[in-house]
């Protein structure tokens, strides 16, 4: 079997006395959707922050495409092919959705240090950004500043931005929260479509979605991974039942 795209080993990070992530070993293989589930406060978002480089680990290592990246800044990890969506949308209120996606395309298209050509004239870039927005169903709202978008639309935009980066590894932190049934269904279909092209880490609370989409599932409780396996294994896992599934009837 090929080397996984992303491997963490012994990854830990505490906040004061609290161990938000505790000795986490997790990998994401090419072409799979790996779901990470767990109760509120389990440490899932902390894990994403560690992997993406927003915060640094206390101990442990992160390998992305075979390279050790735990000391690299966020920008370098993004450059290696890691993209992320935020649990709480991280957008610029005054910029339109289209501008967000165009900006996300720029690192692959000659960078941002161009000062004299108006973006409005960069036809090709705008067309490609438009395609991304169409894939998440937001083309008709492309020109509206984010401040005027609904919560669900902002979630969709988060995905379009992540796609524009053409990532090898995609980390999605509760992308469907607040999207509504129609949006969630479209996103589920989109993830299915993307599955072959990249490795996806999906954090999601809705079990039906998780069991329908995920190739593998890891369960996190109190900062530790308590089980990893496919849907059937996780359904029947005793630790998971008592530690997690038991709490959510």
């Amino acid at each position: 079997m090929a080397e996984p795209l992303l491997v963490t080993s012994g990854l830990s990070r505490g906040f004061g006395a609290l161990k938000a992530c505790d000795d986490v070993n997790l990998d994401i293989r090419a072409g799979e959707i790996h779901a990470l589930i767990g109760p509120n406060g389990a440490g899932k978002s902390t894990f994403v922050k560690l992997v993406s480089g927003e915060i640094g680990p206390d101990t442990g290592s992160i390998h992305l495409l075979g390279k050790s990246v735990e000391t690299l800044p966020m920008t370098a990890r993004a450059g290696l092919g890691m993209a992320r969506s935020f649990q709480v949308s991280a957008l610029a209120p005054s910029m339109s959705g289209l501008e967000h996606v165009v900006l996300a395309l720029l690192p692959h298209e000659g960078g941002v240090f161009h000062f004299l050509r108006p973006v409005a004239r960069e036809r090709e870039l705008r067309d490609r950004a438009g395609e991304m927005l169409a894939r998440v169903g937001m083309l008709d709202r492309a020109e509206i500043p984010v401040a005027g978008l609904s919560h669900g639309e902002r979630r969709q935009l988060e995905i379009a931005i992540a796609l524009a980066l053409e990532p090898r590894v995609l980390l999605l932190d509760e992308p469907m929260a607040g999207m509504g049934p129609e949006g969630s269904a479209r996103l589920a279909a989109l993830l299915n479509e993307l599955r072959g092209d990249m490795g996806i880490l999906l954090i999601e609370h809705d079990m039906d979605t998780v069991f329908a989409l995920a190739d593998r599932i890891s369960v996190m409780v109190g900062g530790r991974i308590v089980a990893t396996g496919n849907a059937d294994e996780i359904r029947s896992d005793e630790t998971v039942k008592t530690a997690y599934l038991g709490e959510t009837p």
Partner: peptide, 20 residues
């Protein structure tokens, strides 16, 4: 320009810019 776009993001959401 492109730079203007990046500058707006650097002001309003530097974390996102780094993530790009």
């Amino acid at each position: 320009s492109r730079f203007g776009l990046a500058l707006t993001m650097a002001r309003e959401n530097p974390l996102r810019l780094a993530n790009l």
